[in-house]
Structure formats: C-alpha cells, structure tokens
C-alpha cells in the first residue's frame, strides 16, 4: 500500500494572529510558520501504518509557494519517504487543492490518502471531503481510529453525538481528528536524513488544474473584543450577580 499525505503550511498554532491594517488578510510576514497540527497527525498515522507493515511508502504533498518545501521536509524528518511540491504563488481554494491532490494521487497510485480534517488558518474543513468526492473513493471523515483489515479499513469517527464506526473499502480518503494519535518529534539524525530525501516539483499547469479563485475575500476584520469583567470572592456574590445583574439564572 502507498499512502499519500497532503500537508499545509500555516501560521504556528501558538502565534496570536493580527489582522493587517489594510484589512486584506492577516499578517504573515516574519511570522513563525509550521505544519498544520491536524496534518502532523495525518503524517504520524501514515508512518504507523507503514511501521505495522501495511504500507511500503509514505509520500508527502503540499501546494503553495517554495517555502512549502520546509513543511514537506518536516514530514520527511518524521519518517516519510519522499515529497511532492506543487509550486504556485496563487492563493488556493480547497476545491483546487483537492483537484491537484487527485492528480498526484492518481499518478502515484496511492491506496490511501490521509489528510488533516481542517487547517487552523482558514478553518475550512473541506479538502478531504472534496477529494473523496472527485476521486469517487470512500470518505472517512474525523477519524479517531483506523485499522487495516481484509475488506479495507475499519474506522471510528468523532461525531457530535459521540462515536461512529464504519467499514470502508480500499482505496480510500480519510481525515484525522485530534484523538487519532500523538505525533512524534523528528530526531536530529532524521532531520539530517530528510535533507537528502527527494522532493519532486510540479506546477498546477502540469497537473492540468485550473486554480483560479471562485471566492473573493472582500475584507478581513478583527472580531469584536470582550472586556474582562469583575472578580467575585464568594458563591453568594456570584449567584447574586448572575440573578440580579446579568439576569441569566
């Protein structure tokens, strides 16, 4: 089995983002970037399937500017075998990304594509579902467990009401939820080794995908802020405030 793991380069989860003064987006210049946390979980799961003997190769793919290669290297340092960089400066939408991943998955004959369920920058939560739809492969979204079996994959999904178990056939597309695993840290020797691992570079044109945007971002603004309220020092005071001031109980 070959596993393809699409990853996204995003502003580090620990950075507090700031809206640009011209309201065209958020400040990304000189801001620490990292692999999207859900994508790290996806890489980890691919590696675990490989280590369990279910997969021969794990390929990382990322679309975006040249700096994305750093994110691909992060995945290679974790233990993935090689990378594919789809090189473009254009801002990408999930449907265009899904179409490009489809092209790569078909070229690589990937049996399983594992994606993070959402990226923590645009919080879209779309690419995996779109990929499954256009590839016409079964979708396992928001998984917290996956096991390879004779018929494909037994998966457990995190849904609003609890957990759901499904059996899906192979090849398949799955997206990761938080509880799937705890991603490993790359060791120093593996970081060094990753520098020698190959990364193929392709363009959207070579993949035959039209990446023009269909959604126009008109304005990005700060949300309304909440001010800190008052401190209380007893249960009686709190209950009094909730009853007589806030009137919520």
């Amino acid at each position: 089995m070959k596993i393809l793991v699409p990853v996204k380069r995003v502003i580090d989860a620990n950075i507090r983002v700031r809206v640009k003064p011209d309201q065209t987006g958020v400040e990304t210049a000189n801001v620490k970037m990292a692999m999207n946390p859900f994508c790290e979980i996806a890489v980890e799961q691919a590696l675990r399937l490989k280590e369990a003997g279910h997969a021969e190769e794990v390929i990382i793919v990322s679309a975006g500017p040249e700096k994305c290669q750093e994110t691909i290297r992060t995945g290679l340092a974790m233990g993935a075998d090689r990378g594919v960089h789809i090189n473009t400066e254009t801002t990408l939408e999930p449907l265009a990304i899904a179409k490009m991943i489809k092209a790569v998955a078909e070229k690589e004959s990937a049996d399983l594509v594992i994606l993070g369920k959402q990226a923590i920058d645009d919080d879209n939560n779309q690419t995996g579902q779109m990929l499954a739809a256009i590839m016409q492969r079964p979708l396992g979204s928001y998984i917290s467990k996956i096991e390879k079996n004779h018929d494909g994959f037994a998966i457990t999904r995190e849904i609003d009401a609890g957990l759901e178990k499904l059996q899906i056939t192979s090849p398949a597309v799955v997206t990761t939820d938080l509880r799937l695993n705890e991603p490993r840290y790359a060791s120093l020797p593996n970081i060094m080794k990753a520098k020698k691992k190959p990364i193929d570079i392709v363009t959207p044109e070579q993949l035959g995908v039209d990446i023009s945007n269909r959604i126009e971002v008109l304005q990005v603004t700060e949300p309304p802020t909440r001010d800190a309220g008052v401190m209380v020092s007893s249960a009686a005071e709190l209950v009094d405030k909730l009853k007589n001031e806030a009137k919520v109980i």
């Binding site: 879209n124 939560n125 579902q129 990929l131 499954a132 739809a133 928001y142």
Partner: peptide
Amino acid sequence: STFGKALIPYVAALCDVQSISD
C-alpha cells in the same frame, strides 16, 4: 455540525462548486 461539515464540501465538489464553511 459534524454532519453538515462532512456533507456540504462533498456535495459541492460533486457539483464542481467551491463551498463556504461556517
């Protein structure tokens, strides 16, 4: 919800539409 978030992008891609989340 987990229901709609899984469903709408899937339908959108079937119809070649870029959906908008949340």
